[in-house]
């Protein structure tokens, strides 16, 4: 179980390789990567600044990860979330779950990102192509996605 909150980028191949290396009981590894999109709610997005709550962020991510381990027989898991200034195409977040069988890995990965999106204290301020800065609003669909795991 690992949680990292950092401004710097991460190397996907390196992270996933390190997560499973040496554990031959793992049969399936599922990962999700979130990227900065160049368009949101009909506006072009030139970049964003991600703010977070140091201390509570790590605590919430650790709780979410622990919850995944309670629900599925996971051999390994990883959450990396970036903060600071990001450009379209940049990686924002990586969640990964590894299990002896694929079904638990798929479900746990889905759970990790659904809960992260509604429970981890991060906020995105988008720099629009118009020059305006806009705080991203929470989506009802994200709440719905998270609530299916209650």
């Amino acid at each position: 179980m690992t949680v990292r909150v950092q401004s710097e980028d991460f190397d996907l191949g390196h992270e996933l390789d390190a997560l499973t290396r040496g554990n031959t009981s793992i049969g399936g590894l599922c990962s999700f990567v979130g990227l900065v999109r160049d368009m949101n709610d009909g506006s072009g997005v030139g970049g964003m600044v991600l703010e977070h709550y140091p201390g509570m962020t790590e605590k919430m991510l650790e709780e979410i990860e622990a919850q995944a381990h309670e629900r599925w027989p996971l051999q390994a898991s990883l959450i990396i979330h970036r903060y600071g200034a990001l450009q379209p195409g940049d990686r924002i977040v990586l969640v990964a779950a590894a299990s002896p069988h694929r079904d638990a890995a798929f479900q746990a990965c889905n759970f990790l990102i659904d809960w992260l999106k509604t429970k981890a204290p991060f906020w995105k301020a988008e720099q629009l192509d118009s020059g305006e800065t806009r705080w991203v609003e929470a989506r009802e669909g994200d709440e719905k996605a998270a609530s299916k795991w209650q």
Partner: peptide
């Protein structure tokens, strides 16, 4: 104290209380 609460959550002198909009990470 870095745990989600609501309007009814008790607060005391040495607490850390945070206010923020709905979260939008991921």
């Amino acid at each position: 104290n870095q745990t989600f609460g609501d309007r009814e959550t008790p607060i005391a002198a040495n607490d850390e209380v945070a206010f923020f909009p709905p979260v939008t990470g991921g």
